[in-house]
Design a protein around this nucleic acid. Structure first.
Length: 764
RNA sequence: GCGGACGUGGCGAAAUCGGUAGACGCACGAGACUUAAAAUCUUGCGGGGAAACCUGUGCGGGUUCGAGUCCCGCCGUCCGCACCA
């Protein structure tokens, strides 16, 4: 309810929207079933933070200090059977394919790389000395640094590791320690502050290479059960965390990596571990090897050693990426089309029965999932045996919907989720534009989903988005009253007093503090209503300002002054057009070449602008395109002041052509103004459907060029010379310049560098 | 802590391959028009200097005929990840 309220929606509206058109759900459910049959979907018990008041699952960020932030209630840990997509099947592929996405920002690719988090290492089994309470005879750990095995001084396992649980069952102190860790585990804030803590279980394991050496096994609060095997060996000399732990519990710190140049006899670890490059020492058969070679040597040796009938070491690639949990206990979402039958297990809803639609008469008068406590909705018959069965009441994460809409859009009325002909011919998306906030989740899920669609025959490609561009946000100043209350820009007037910008509240003139520039948000009230912008300035002005102010990948600061400037430009174009109207009506006549200087200059300016704008738009350089358009407008205004088209038909034709180009290059950014101008010029149809003008590249080639002339790398003058002049001609002309002659004082230059069409540098 | 990006006028920013730093806009100053204001137009605008000229792209070095751009080392800002073994 709170969520709906914040969206300004009533319950009736929510029901209406959630149930209005089930066709997309039908196709999504069809694909879900196909994924299920292909083994890409599975159910897994997972621990969740359960809010006992709202009867809902809380996201991690909703939990602070063991309490849910919305209800303030204590959070329970529960285990729920939930649906997951097997995105981890594609970890390696999702990672390596990033290298081929060359039209994606490096930043996004890097974020995905880190998120997938590949690490190559070794699983090592340590023989347990004596007896473990659960009967385990070996402790398996994962490490990326097997080269430091001879520096091992302890083992650490996660508090919820099976071995730790078994040990805790007969050791009350350990159980209490584990309980403390569990309480802490849910709180991000505590985690950051938490000191490394451990509990010595008394259990010991044998070092695989050093006969007679045993290592103590600790339960430690910093070991995660869901990474690797939930257990590590600690090498304090070469790992920050292990180092801190060893200091606290007075464990040996044995260096085994020697930095180059250090003396093996005297090298010791001081206040910090050493994690750099070096040569292995104090390590038996590894001595003298590089880190990489030692990793290999250890892996090979352990692979060949047998412990209790299995190899003692196994090379393993580990990923940070987890499977994608899509179950949501909410009304709002696409129902998961599955049926639970006592006899047959989990059975997909048959295609003919799709879509499974949400009930319209769901109620929200008590906590929990409305689908679950709806009186009839979940009761159904098993499609296989016909017996009484129960519908899945979880709905899908809405990221599922956004993971394939672009594929559906290629044939939106098709009776199947996609049609291969359409999806193969349209995809991949050439240019995707979105915010950086989707860098990981949405863009990674879509990449997975496209692969899953390929695996189930719904598409034929791996990568959905060939080009990606991440645009910035619109941001605005914030305003705060002395009472600390945020107020909106509409309630504030900005004044310049004593050369300082100051703000006052419109209603009573009270002083207002101008705060930092931030992303527009309702909480800070620094929002500008789009309807008011369009009502007050027009859509063209708003768009022109946003495009002109900053490059599109950066944030644009919304300012009243900036918008006014943009609006002035709209008026100026319209006014200039009005002044020139007598000469620019009807179809463009081909401008004569026998023209006056003003006309020729104008033609060059127009074609130069056209060429530049084409290039800028192609590269999404809208702010640069705007600057080029300003330049052309300035040139037009100057020409209109200087020349008289009434007495010069060539000039009139040049104006006609220049205005024609101007309004066409404005059109993509200010369509309304452009159409109005188009119509005022007496042109037929709509500009939007007219062809883009063709630039005359020959026209902008000048016969003479002006080269900057440098002496010893500093600009001292200019040289105007024929474009076709040879290097020798340029050289002798430069040496004849007064500034060059006086600088040389009769000596020969040491060197003259002529860069064609660019610059000349005389080294004296 | 790890990883990355970026530092250019009062402000937003340009500078395509190492080749005239500050295009274009905003703000501001001066002037014209006006009884006045708004709008519009003209003009100035990195810093120093009367000028010639000097100086200037976070700081310190380097490469080069030439560096905002390339290399090394600092400083600062922002972003992402974060007990990942």
């Amino acid at each position: 309810k709170a969520q709906l309220k914040s969206m300004g929606l009533s319950l009736d509206w929510a029901r209406e929207i959630a149930t209005c058109d089930p066709s997309y759900y039908r196709h999504q459910q069809k694909m879900f079933v196909d994924f299920f049959k292909a083994g890409l979907v599975y159910r897994r018990k997972s621990k969740v933070n359960w809010d006992p008041v709202d009867m809902t699952v809380l996201a991690n960020e909703q939990v602070v200090d063991g309490r849910g932030w919305r209800s303030g209630a204590l959070v329970e840990q529960r285990e729920l059977e939930q649906w997951n997509f097997r995105i981890t099947d594609y970890s390696e592929d999702l990672l390596t394919a990033l290298d081929r996405l060359d039209r994606w920002p490096e930043k996004v690719r890097l974020m995905q790389r880190n998120w997938i988090g590949k690490s190559e290492g070794l699983r090592v089994r340590f023989e347990i000395a004596g007896e473990a309470p659960n009967g385990d005879r070996a402790l398996e750990i994962f490490t990326t640094r097997p080269d430091t095995l001879f520096g091992a001084s302890f083992m650490a396992i996660a508090p919820d590791h099976p071995l730790a649980k078994a040990l805790g069952a007969r050791d009350a102190d350990l159980a209490a320690f584990q309980e403390r860790c569990r309480q802490m585990g849910t709180s991000v804030a505590v985690l950051e502050m938490a000191e490394k803590e451990g509990y010595d279980t008394g259990l010991r394991v044998h070092h695989p290479f050093v006969a007679g050496l045993t290592l103590p096994v600790y339960v430690a609060n910093f070991i995660l059960m869901d990474y690797g095997t939930g257990a590590i060996f600690g090498c304090p000399a070469h790992d920050q965390r292990d180092f801190e732990f060893a200091r606290k519990y007075a464990l040996p710190i044995i260096p085994v990596v020697l930095p180059s140049g250090a003396d093996a006899a005297s090298f010791a670890i001081g206040d910090a571990p050493y994690d750099g490059e070096g040569t292995i020492f104090q390590s038996d058969f590894l001595n003298g090897l590089t880190i990489e070679a030692a990793k290999n040597a250890v892996a090979s040796r352990l692979e060949g050693m047998s412990l209790q009938g299995t190899p003692q070491g196994t090379r393993q690639v580990n990923f940070r990426l987890r499977d994608w949990l899509i179950s949501r206990q909410r009304y709002w979402g696409c129902p998961i089309p599955m049926i639970h039958c006592e006899a047959c297990g989990v059975v997909p809803v048959p295609a003919a029965d799709l879509p499974v639609v949400l009930p319209r008469d769901a109620t929200f008068d008590r906590p929990g999932n409305p689908l679950d406590h709806h009186p009839t909705w979940k009761h159904t018959a098993c499609p296989q045996c016909g017996g009484a069965a129960r519908r899945e009441t979880d709905t899908m994460d809405t990221f599922v919907d956004s993971s394939w809409y672009f594929a559906r859009f290629t044939d939106p009325w098709a009776d199947t989720p996609t049609t291969r002909q359409a999806v193969d011919s349209w995809l991949p998306v050439d240019q995707y534009i979105g915010g950086i906030e989707h860098a990981i989740l949405h863009l990674l899920y879509s990449r997975f989903f496209t692969r899953a669609m390929k695996a189930t025959g719904h598409a034929g490609l791996d990568e959905p988005f060939a080009g990606l561009f991440t645009q910035g946000m619109v941001v605005h100043e914030t305003y705060k009253t002395p009472q600390g209350e945020w107020i909106s820009p509409a309630e504030v007037e900005i004044l310049e007093i004593d050369g300082r910008r100051q703000a006052r509240r419109l209603s009573d003139g009270a002083a207002v503090e101008i705060g930092s520039i931030e992303k527009m948000s309702k909480s800070k009230k620094n929002v500008v209503d789009p309807d008011e912008i369009i009502g007050g300035w027009g859509a063209d002005t708003a768009r022109w300002f946003m495009l002109s102010d900053s490059p599109p990948d950066r944030d644009v600061i919304w300012t009243e002054a900036g918008v006014e400037g943009a609006h002035r430009f709209v008026q100026r174009v319209w006014r200039l057009l009005g002044e020139a109207l007598p000469w620019i009506s009807g179809p463009v006549r081909p401008p004569s070449n026998a023209t006056c200087e003003i006309a020729l200059g104008l033609r060059k300016a127009a074609h130069k602008a056209l060429i530049a704008v084409e290039d800028d738009l192609e590269k999404l350089g809208f702010n640069r395109a705007v600057a080029r358009i300003y330049e052309l407008t300035n040139a037009l205004q100057r020409a209109l002041a200087e020349g008289d088209p009434a007495t010069d038909p060539a000039l009139a034709a040049a104006f006609h052509e220049a205005f024609d180009i101007l309004i066409r290059i404005i059109a993509p950014m200010m369509p309304h103004l452009a159409e109005e101008c188009w119509s005022a010029m007496g042109r037929q149809g709509m500009l939007a459907t007219a062809d883009w003008p063709v630039a005359d590249h020959m026209l902008i080639v000048d016969e003479t060029i002006t080269l900057p002339v440098q002496i010893n790398g500093k600009k001292r003058g200019e040289l105007t010379i024929a474009r076709e002049a040879s290097e020798a001609d340029v050289r002798s002309a430069v040496l004849g310049l007064d500034i060059v002659v006086s600088a040389l004082e009769g000596r020969e230059p040491r060197k003259v560098i002529v860069v064609a069409q660019r610059i000349v540098n005389v080294v004296a």
